[in-house]
Nucleic acid binder design. Structure first.
Lengths: 342, 342
DNA sequence: AAAGAAACCGAAAAGCTTTTCTGAAAGCTA
DNA sequence: TAGCTTTCAGAAAAGCTTTTCGGTTTCTTT
């Protein structure tokens, strides 16, 4: 069982294996591999060659134990299934990967108990920080101020203003959308949106109404809240056309709703965008590009939210803690469903 | 700066803090907390209380360093964006989370260089194993046989038969779909599917043709390969109806294609499912439920693929290495777009 | 050639937990 | 009461890397 002379005896090679093969001490091997200056060039080469031959990788556990920093962070999502978490997660993973930080992924499935469990497990693994990704933009309970590592909340802000949260700016999103429609010459704009229990729905509506008001205009009818589904989009569009056949633009609270609206417009022989412009939110490619015509949509720049959260966490780990809610801009992606009135 | 007497002086509490507070040695504290039997009940209580007060969590790095196992695995995806990775990832995360294993998430973005980089980083962190999640079912290059930890490939099998791969059974999926349509009394079945460069498309078509052949039937026309988009679904449906107006069922290679087909059928006043039954693959809720009528679809059970991969990796870590390609069954989810011929 | 400086290498400790082994105390029997 | 067993607590080592500090060698300078 014991194979004392076998170089590949058990598990990965350690620094002491490398040192032995190169005929130097542990300390020298370490310094050689880490570019420290206390070692002759020829010796360094020998050590590097030995490390190469054993395909040595320094044990990050030992390193972390010593340094007090592990180079890992926890990414705590509340629902992986939802499509909003993914781009944020991608942005964060991207930003961290560039900085040699590894990411522990935990999905709490929207359960507070499970979330607590994951937090404890992550702290046991001595993560250097946490990013908490929400599934909607409504504020969520804080993990608390007593955590031994910095925390950044992404998408869903923390209820505690002492925490740092990074969220997309839904009010501005509503403004931008209406500005685009106004720039297209539309003046009779209706708004069909989703569940009024969602802050995102209310904020986008508020932004839209503010932009219209700035232009001396108002929505055609009140904002129509309902559900985040194509079915609601179809139903609401039918009601809207019955009551306000004069509309020349429909701003929809999501791409799903917008698809429903476009379908009904097609069925009723309204031309899109010539007669009625339609736009949505989220810029969800599967929907925007499959629609006829393709949908103009507001992209919430979620990847950027993830990246910004990662960078903020970097900063906090380095000691530069901030707090409050930081909002990030979004952008209008123009496709065929909006165009200037001719 | 130095606060020698402050119990919460720097970073999380260590076992030696607990031992000091409880007035025992490190060894005793460890044994007390780990349920070892060499400790008097009263002493154990004292230690537990101390640990509680300091909210002590054992440092998993030190533990891993000692044990040789870290209780972490790497989850290597090739594209997070793609919707197939996510359910697999959820299943795996779920299975691991239950076993106190933490998951490192890495997204290679389809880049082999980046993948290599991530593998090296993960090995440096001494993961106990790796799961490689592909974005399509075509075989992919192996990470190699020389890795010091077990690897399981999920969704995309490894090209090396010595590796273990867990994939959904696309041939059976095609069979099941046709069996369902046959059970509905359909006999003139056409197949519109996606990019023929995808193994999944070819296998599903093969399964479908095999099931028809078993029933003494054949497809209406050849399988129509194209793209994985609604647009292709619409175009292909139009061509199909022009050439074969007698079809009573269309099996579509994806839910996206199926939606396109349903739309064209509606526009041409064919009733779904009365005149023509339609079904898709993937069971992608956003599409299936928004369609009119809701789409019957084959669910590839991807979460189960993830869970099975996690369990296989557990087994391999425990020493029970397997190899080869293991296929998992899928299931038909019936909705409004298919029904028995009346 | 001798002394001082510079360059280089190695021993040892720290970081935290678990386990084994040793030692001590308490309880029991003869 | 002496000797034994049982029970419990502590010391020390292992696991791997990095860093500090001390020691040795080589080179330069006078």
């Amino acid at each position: 069982m014991a194979q004392a002379t076998d170089p590949s005896r058990s598990g990965p090679a350690t620094l002491s294996d490398v040192a032995r093969l190169a005929g130097v001490s542990l300390a020298t091997a370490s310094k050689a591999l880490n570019g420290r200056s206390q070692v002759r060039a020829e010796t360094r080469q020998r050590v590097i060659a030995a490390a190469e031959r054993l395909s040595f990788r320094p044990n990050q556990l030992a390193r972390g134990l010593l340094a007090g920093r592990t180079g890992t962070v926890g990414l705590l999502t509340s629902d992986l299934e939802g499509r909003f978490s993914i781009p944020i997660l991608m942005g964060a993973e991207d930003a961290f990967g560039a900085g040699e930080v590894a990411v522990f992924l935990c999905d709490a499935r929207g359960d507070a108990i499970r979330e607590q469990h994951h937090v404890r497990a992550l702290l046991g693994r001595r993560v250097d920080g946490l990013i908490v990704v929400g599934s909607r933009t409504d504020p969520r309970p804080s993990l608390g101020r007593e955590l031994p590592v910095p925390v950044v909340y992404a998408y869903a802000p923390s209820e505690d203003p002492a925490d740092l949260s990074i969220v997309p700016d839904n009010v501005e999103a509503g403004r931008l959308a209406v500005d685009h429609l106004l720039a297209c010459g539309r003046t009779r704009i209706a708004h069909i949106t989703g569940d009024p229990g969602y802050l995102a729905a209310r904020e986008r509506a508020a932004g839209a109404e503010a932009a219209l008001s700035d232009a001396g205009l108002a929505l055609v009818g009140a904002p129509r809240f309902g559900m985040w589904s194509e079915g609601w989009g179809r139903a609401a569009a039918a009601m809207l056309l019955d009551k306000h056949p004069e509309v020349d633009a429909v701003l929809c609270g999501s791409d799903q709703i917008a698809r429903g609206v476009v379908e009904v417009l097609r069925e009723r022989d309204h031309r899109v965008p010539e007669d009625v412009a339609v736009m949505g939110f989220d810029n969800w490619q599967v929907l925007t590009s499959a629609s006829r015509p393709p949908l103009t949509s507001v992209d919430m720049n979620l990847e950027q939210v993830g990246r910004a959260a990662a960078q903020a966490l970097f900063g906090a780990i380095a000691g530069a803690r901030r707090s409050g809610v930081q909002t990030l801009s979004c952008r209008v992606v123009v496709r065929g469903s909006t165009a200037a009135l001719s």
